[in-house]
Simulated assay, not measured.
Amino acid sequence: MTGKATGRLVHRDDGLYLMMDRLFTAIPDDVWATMTRPAELEKWIGTLTGAPNTGAAKFRMSAEPEAQAQYVTILECSAPHRFLGDFGEGEDAWRALFHLVEGNGMTTLTFGQRLRNPAEAATVGPGWDYYLDRLVAYRAGRPLPTWDGYYPALAQAYKDMILPARTR
């Protein structure tokens, strides 16, 4: 199975983000739990160890055998609607956010990662499509997708993205 490129580039106050949406038939509390509880995270994306409420937490993406655990700095956490955090340290650090919005019995998840430059979307985009599709599959009780359907298959779609003009 090949995934689909679902990202879009968005300028935010703190930089350029690659943003993606997924829709769930669930209330935000349920989706929030799947995205923040260590036992749930392990089933679709990775391991969270330590105590996030004290700032002493590490996260490791489990579907990437070479991935190392990274420190997590939580910048905003407003359960069950908003999360903003930095992962890693120094030049390798990256920022991610997610928002959950409910409407008509559905919850829309908007996920984003800040990019250093637009070209980074070619590697970041397929990865997040893969992980977010794993989230959807896990919540639906379906088999999780495999990486080979995402990279390099989706890289060109992200290379071809048009950078939006900055609006004020």
Rank of each mutant, 00 (worst) to 15 (best):
D129T: 00
L9K: 09
A57G: 07
L135D: 00
Q113V: 13
Y150T: 14
T146N: 10
D86A: 14
G7P: 05
E120P: 07
W94S: 11
D29K: 09
L23H: 15
D92F: 08
A96I: 11
R8G: 12
M1N: 13
P118V: 14
G46V: 11
D13A: 13
L41V: 06
G105V: 07
A56P: 00
A121W: 00
P164S: 02
A5W: 05
N117F: 11
L75H: 15
A155V: 01
T6G: 14
E102R: 03
M1H: 13
E89L: 12
L84C: 09
G85F: 03
F87Y: 10
D21N: 14
G46I: 02
A122E: 15
D86T: 15
T36K: 02
G15D: 13
R166S: 13
G125V: 05
L144A: 09
E102D: 15
M20L: 15
A63P: 01
Y130V: 01
L41W: 02
A79P: 15
G127E: 01
T54E: 15
Q113W: 05
M106E: 12
L109A: 05
L135H: 00
T47Y: 01
D13F: 02
P152F: 06
E102N: 08
R8H: 02
G7N: 09
R166M: 06
Y131W: 13
V31R: 02
E76N: 14
M161R: 11
T108Q: 11
A33T: 10
G103Q: 08
Y71S: 12
Q113Y: 01
Q68N: 05
F59S: 00
M106A: 02
F87Q: 12
W128M: 06
L100E: 10
T54W: 09
S78C: 11
T2Q: 12
G141K: 02
T49V: 11
A69F: 04
G105S: 04
T107I: 09
T73A: 15
G55T: 10
G125D: 05
M1D: 13
T6A: 12
F83C: 15
A122P: 00
A119K: 15
D14L: 07
R142S: 11
L154E: 05
T34S: 15
V72L: 15
H81A: 05
K58L: 10
I27R: 03
D29L: 01
